[in-house]
Amino acid sequence: MPTEWKLFADLAERAGEKHVRVDASAGDTVGDALEELLADRPALAERVLEEDGEELRTQINVLRNGTNVLVEEDGLETELEDGDELALFPPVSGGSVERR
Score class of each variant (00 low, 15 high):
residue 71 V to W: 06
residue 87 A to M: 07
residue 54 E to H: 07
residue 99 R to H: 15
residue 29 T to Q: 05
residue 33 A to E: 03
residue 99 R to N: 15
residue 41 R to I: 01
residue 66 G to C: 08
residue 35 E to R: 15
residue 6 K to E: 13
residue 66 G to Q: 03
residue 16 G to H: 13
residue 10 D to L: 14
residue 19 H to I: 05
residue 51 E to G: 03
residue 32 D to G: 01
residue 78 T to L: 01
residue 10 D to P: 09
residue 11 L to I: 01
residue 51 E to W: 04
residue 90 P to N: 13
residue 70 L to I: 10
residue 30 V to A: 03
residue 63 L to C: 10
residue 79 E to F: 12
residue 53 G to T: 03
residue 81 E to C: 04
residue 29 T to S: 12
residue 64 R to H: 07
residue 34 L to C: 00
residue 44 L to Y: 02
residue 62 V to Q: 06
residue 83 G to H: 12
residue 69 V to M: 10
residue 53 G to H: 04
residue 4 E to V: 14
residue 38 L to A: 02
residue 80 L to Y: 05
residue 42 P to V: 07
residue 60 I to F: 02
residue 75 G to R: 05
residue 31 G to H: 13
residue 58 T to P: 00
residue 45 A to G: 11
residue 48 V to K: 01
residue 19 H to P: 00
residue 37 L to M: 10
residue 19 H to V: 10
residue 69 V to A: 11
residue 66 G to L: 03
residue 28 D to G: 04
residue 44 L to A: 05
residue 55 E to W: 05
residue 79 E to G: 10
residue 30 V to R: 05
residue 33 A to R: 07
residue 66 G to D: 10
residue 16 G to K: 08
residue 1 M to L: 13
residue 46 E to N: 12
residue 7 L to F: 04
residue 100 R to I: 13
residue 20 V to L: 05
residue 92 V to C: 05
residue 86 L to M: 08
residue 64 R to S: 02
residue 12 A to E: 12
residue 22 V to W: 07
residue 16 G to F: 08
residue 6 K to Q: 14
residue 89 F to D: 09
residue 31 G to E: 12
residue 21 R to A: 09
